[in-house]
Structure formats: structure tokens, C-alpha cells
């Protein structure tokens, strides 16, 4: 009987385990294995090799660039805004609305977000037209296009910045007043305090958020499709088109592309975990 009890305990996890295996692990594994199979099921590296064409490589490269740029800027701006509101001596009443708005904006992604930016920075957008008529600044002639690297990055920031604010605010709250004061009284300038104490303490949180934002941007499909149609070759759009209509002419190349996405986000997270372990020797 004693042997039987533990297995009953584990039985309580059965529904969750079944769900996770059937709808999270198995589909992912299917992709991973499919990437190394021919149509007849035999093993091959052809699909992986097939990724190394200029157009697919450049789509990964653009995707990674957009993801890095939008997460780095998202972290930076989100951090500055959170720090400004918490530490900048602004009225306390600002904080709660900012967090509520961040909750809304971080969830306002996808298709509607693309519309909002088309209406603002698109060819006939509010800001585009305003700048042209009031100041004679022609964004288009200056090379700006909403259907571009920068256009997409600026759009993604709309959900990246608020996500950073939401995650970093409790971390900044966790900075003790005594640390700042101890640093000051020991002769440190504000910059020295930030460089030697505050930022190293916040580093793991910032890093974690960066990894999350990266995955967030890298997998974003809806905003990109609604914004650019298929004019910008980023990985999610290509994969979307491939799943819909096998535009690459090889069904298993789709598996390889999807596997590539998993590898990229997984790599980002492994780097994150590794850096975090290094940064957190002083914890635990």
C-alpha cells in the first residue's frame, strides 16, 4: 500500500500533463522531427540545408533585427518611464493610471494595433499628413515607410514598452532607499550608484524582460501581416504563407522554418538563463 500512494499523488497531475503533452509538447516535437524528415518519413538534413537560401536567411535576419531593436528600445524606454514615475519625483497619482494603461497597451497587439499605426504613420496617417502640411516634412521622401524595419519596430514598441513597465516597476520598487543613501554618503555620485549598485541589482529582471520581449516580437504574426501584408519578408509572415499555401514548394521546409523559430527563441532564453545565473551569484 505504501508504494501505491505516491502514484496516486502523481495521478492528480494527469489532466494537466495530458493537456500539456497533447497540445504543447507533441505539436512542438512534431515540428522538430518533421524538420528532419522527407515526405516519405525518411531522415534527412535537406530541409535544414534548404533554410540557407538568401531569401530565407534574410527573413531570419530581419526578424531578429526587428526583435532585438524593439526589445532593446522597449526595455530602455520602459525602464526610463518606470524610473521617471517612481524615482523622478512625479506626483504619486500618475503611477496607477500608468500601470493600468500599460496593462491595456501590452494586450493591445495584433491586427488592431496595425490599424492604429497605419492611421498615424501610414501614407495618409495623422502624423504623416500633419508633418507634411504644417512643416513641409515629407516622411516618405526621407525614406520612412511604415512597411519597413523601423515602421515595424516602432509599432511593436507599443506593446513592448508597456510590458517592460509592468515587469520592471516592482523591481524598481524593490530598490531600498538605504542603498542609495549608503552609496551617497560613501561619496558615490548618482551615476556611480546606478552603475555599481542599482543596475546590477536590476540586471536579472531587465534581462528576463528582454528575453520575453524578444520572443514576443519574434513570434508576432498578426501585427506584421495586417501592417505589411506580405511585402516585408520576416519569418512569421513567410511561415504563415507557407502553412497556408506551401509557397516554398516543399512542405517540410515549413517544419524547418518553424524549428528555426524555436531555435532562435530558445537560444535567446538559454542566453538569458546563463547570464542570469552569472548575474545572480549574490542571490541564493
Amino acid at each position: 500500500m505504501r508504494r501505491f500512494r505516491p502514484s496516486l499523488t502523481w495521478l492528480g497531475l494527469l489532466p494537466f500533463a495530458a493537456f500539456v503533452i497533447l497540445f504543447l509538447f507533441a505539436p512542438t516535437m512534431k515540428i522538430v522531427f518533421g524538420a528532419f524528415q522527407r515526405a516519405d518519413g525518411s531522415f534527412t538534413f535537406e530541409n535544414i540545408a534548404g533554410l540557407f537560401t538568401p531569401s530565407i536567411l534574410s527573413s531570419y535576419w530581419i526578424s531578429i533585427k526587428i526583435s532585438v531593436a524593439s526589445s532593446a528600445l522597449g526595455c530602455l524606454v520602459g525602464f526610463l518611464m518606470a524610473a521617471a514615475v517612481i524615482l523622478g519625483g512625479l506626483p504619486k497619482g500618475i503611477r496607477s493610471p500608468l500601470l493600468t494603461f500599460s496593462g491595456v497597451a501590452s494586450n493591445f497587439a495584433g491586427v488592431p494595433l496595425a490599424f492604429a499605426f497605419l492611421a498615424t504613420l501610414g501614407p495618409l496617417g495623422l502624423v504623416t499628413v500633419f508633418l507634411k502640411t504644417q512643416f513641409g516634412i515629407n516622411l516618405r521622401a526621407m525614406g520612412f515607410n511604415i512597411l519597413s524595419f523601423w515602421g515595424l519596430t516602432i509599432t511593436y514598441l507599443f506593446f513592448q514598452i508597456p510590458l517592460m513597465i509592468l515587469i520592471i516597476t516592482p523591481a524598481i520598487d524593490g530598490l531600498k532607499r538605504e542603498w542609495r543613501e549608503a552609496a551617497q554618503v560613501l561619496g558615490a555620485t548618482g551615476a556611480q550608484y546606478w552603475r555599481m549598485v542599482a543596475l546590477p541589482i536590476l540586471f536579472p529582471s531587465i534581462l528576463g524582460t528582454f528575453a520575453l520581449l524578444f520572443a514576443n516580437a519574434f513570434g508576432a504574426v498578426a501585427t506584421a501581416i495586417a501592417l505589411t501584408g506580405s511585402s516585408l519578408n520576416i519569418v512569421p509572415i513567410m511561415l504563415f504563407a507557407q502553412i497556408r499555401g506551401d509557397v516554398l514548394g516543399n512542405p517540410h521546409l515549413g517544419y524547418a522554418m518553424a524549428l528555426g523559430m524555436i531555435v532562435v527563441t530558445a537560444t535567446a532564453n538559454v542566453i538569458y538563463i546563463w547570464l542570469r545565473l552569472r548575474a545572480e551569484r549574490w542571490l541564493k
Binding site: K176, E178, W179, E181, A182, A183, V185, V197, P200
Partner: peptide
């Protein structure tokens, strides 16, 4: 000036 605070004012990351 040197100052010692009530508690836990050591820099945890150092």
C-alpha cells in the same frame, strides 16, 4: 561622513 543604517543597507550584489 560615515553612516550605518538600521538594517540591510549592504549592497546585496557586492
Amino acid at each position: 561622513i560615515g553612516m550605518v543604517f538600521q538594517a540591510y543597507a549592504l549592497f546585496p550584489n557586492l
